[in-house]
Write a protein that binds this DNA or RNA. Structure first.
Lengths: 147, 147
DNA sequence: ATAAACCTTAGAGTTAGCTCCAAGGTCAAG
DNA sequence: CTTGACCTTGGAGCTAACTCTAAGGTTTAT
């Protein structure tokens, strides 16, 4: 089955960004069109959509375009040497992702407690600000052992 | 017990950013020193450290300084009206945080599968790139129903 | 008492990530 | 066969978030 190809404007509209941004990503080496038609128009296939979704996801959680480019460039090969390199890079990124997950969970908890404290209940404003809410969700982490 | 107060340079070093950045955050209304000494030096207390940690966490997971400022400005009051406003704002942010959590989990899974595929095993390179790894972790979400 | 290591301000410069503009080619509809 | 909505390129402009520079005050150590 032949892949459906999308023009830049359609892809842009579908994923809610501008054609300019797509051309910018191409210039930055993040996303190249699957092909160009004879008149020079860019055409994107499903593979590019997947790639673009990944780019947007990663951007949303705070990765820079450069980091995303590195992630997309990763290739696990049979070559032992490059494999070890890739693994250590991936493991570093995993640490990073895990930290972000923890940060997000903390923020989520404080937002939840804020949302719950708000209105509705008879006991209004237990935690009045996000920082108080955050302190309320804190288990007890008092240490600064990482530089 | 009297709070320990920290000079700008000490705080900067402790949280691994520059004094310039701290002054910048002050100018942006994100973080004001607890007090100024007679010579104009800024002094920060534990409360400011907590606030700064929140700022850095939120920044790390992709919030802008402006969004962070709004989050820090939130106050649940007894006033019904403002309370509803706050709640809807907080709930929006919660949606946002939940999306980020999902994105991060997806990325984490693909990194894990990439790390596992790499070296070590007898079956090398099952998923060679992050996108293939990502596709491998996909349950089956084929729909574009939002916009 | 003077040098090193801090701190202050105001403002200029930098980088990332777009975003817009000008000048022009393409194509479907009427 | 032209009008309007697309697409192309190159390059200028913009905003966020720093980062640096200049000119100067303070504090501590010798």
């Amino acid at each position: 089955m032949k892949q459906t190809l999308h023009k830049i404007g359609d892809l842009a509209e579908a994923l809610n960004l501008s054609s300019d941004t797509l051309r910018y990503y191409e210039k930055q080496g993040l996303l190249t069109a699957a092909k160009r038609s004879s008149n020079g128009y860019r055409f994107y296939s499903e593979a590019e959509i997947g790639r673009l979704e990944f780019i947007l996801s990663a951007k949303k959680v705070g990765f820079t375009l450069n980091e995303i480019k590195q992630l997309l460039a990763l290739e696990v090969t049979k070559d032992e040497k490059s494999c070890a390199d890739v693994k250590s890079f991936v493991d570093d990124k995993l640490d990073d992702v895990n930290i972000r997950l923890l940060e997000l969970e903390r923020i989520k908890k404080s937002l939840l407690s804020l949302s719950a404290a708000c209105c509705g209940g008879p006991e209004p404003a237990t935690h009045c600000t996000i920082l108080e809410a955050l302190a309320g969700t804190e288990v007890s982490s008092k240490s600064g052992s990482s530089a």
